[in-house]
Design a protein around this nucleic acid. Structure first.
Length: 244
DNA sequence: AACCGTTCCAACCGCTTACTA
DNA sequence: ATAGTAAGCGGTTGGAACGGT
């Protein structure tokens, strides 16, 4: 059996010092991201491996973009959230240089509020009856940059054109998101969101078809309805899959 | 200057999944 | 087949920074 990842009583918590950062950077530059359990000791850090991993992924990685989110990034996050819900790692995977933590924080501190101010329920991307709602929610002043929002909140997917069914649940989510902003009827048109997940997946792991078959088989056998296994997560590509 | 409330984000916690002995 | 562990993930929290009074 494996050893536990760290001895909790000997590990340091809280903010990282520059020295600690440097130790971790130096170690990973030299040895790469290996086994996180062994990294703290090897790098001379009194940290839990989990903490090292988080620090590296969310803060120290050289490919991180950091800084303010661009308009198109905001737009994309909202669109992807409408599609995927709080699956931050999936969303972040489509925003090069951004981490799930960063996207999540940005959503919670900025975008959620913006949607609320626009009278859109951020949980389901529907126009809310209870939330404040400007007369012209889209074109108002500083939020004009979210003008793509109508489309994000949810053009229903027109077809299920995927070559394989990645998971019924994603379609459930899509169709749920897709039903939004309808305000009980089809009162607006939502023109430009391409939710077709089929053709743009740039990475086709060898195992995909087999995996999907297995999963479908398993789902069928167990009548499983757990929604979280969206096969999109096997794609390592940061390419924006959804909008072209 | 001091206090208070709000915002933001880094980091932690706990759960789930995948993997391995 | 089973149980234990590492890795990954989303939710939550603590505290620094900021703005208003």
């Amino acid at each position: 059996m494996r050893k536990p990842c760290c001895d909790k009583q000997d590990t340091k918590k809280g903010a990282w010092s520059k020295q600690e950062d440097q130790k971790l950077i130096d170690y990973i530059r030299k040895h790469g991201e290996g086994c996180w359990r062994t990294i703290p000791q090897a790098a001379g850090l009194l940290r839990c491996g989990k903490s090292c991993r988080l620090r590296w992924i969310n803060y120290l990685r050289p490919d991180l973009k950091r800084g303010n989110f661009a308009e198109d990034e905001e737009d994309l996050i909202i669109k992807l959230h409408a599609l995927l819900g709080n699956r931050w790692s999936l969303i972040a995977g489509r925003l090069p240089g951004r981490t799930d933590n960063e996207v999540k924080n940005y959503w919670n501190s900025h975008l959620r509020r913006k949607l609320i101010n626009m009278g859109i329920d951020p949980n389901n991307h529907r126009l809310s009856q209870n939330l404040p709602r400007p007369q012209n929610p889209i074109s108002t002043s500083s939020d004009a940059k979210l003008s793509g929002l109508k489309s994000c909140v949810a053009e229903p997917p027109v077809t299920k054109s995927r070559g394989f069914d990645i998971n019924n649940n994603i379609y459930d989510q899509v169709s749920d998101a897709g039903s939004c902003l309808l305000e009980d009827d089809n009162s607006c048109s939502l023109p430009d969101l391409n939710l077709d997940l089929t053709t743009s997946i740039p990475f086709t792991p060898v195992l995909v078809n087999h995996d999907v078959e297995e999963r479908q088989k398993h789902n069928h056998e167990s009548n499983a309805s757990e929604p979280d296994q969206v096969d999109l997560h096997v794609s390592p590509s940061p390419t924006l899959l959804l909008f072209r």
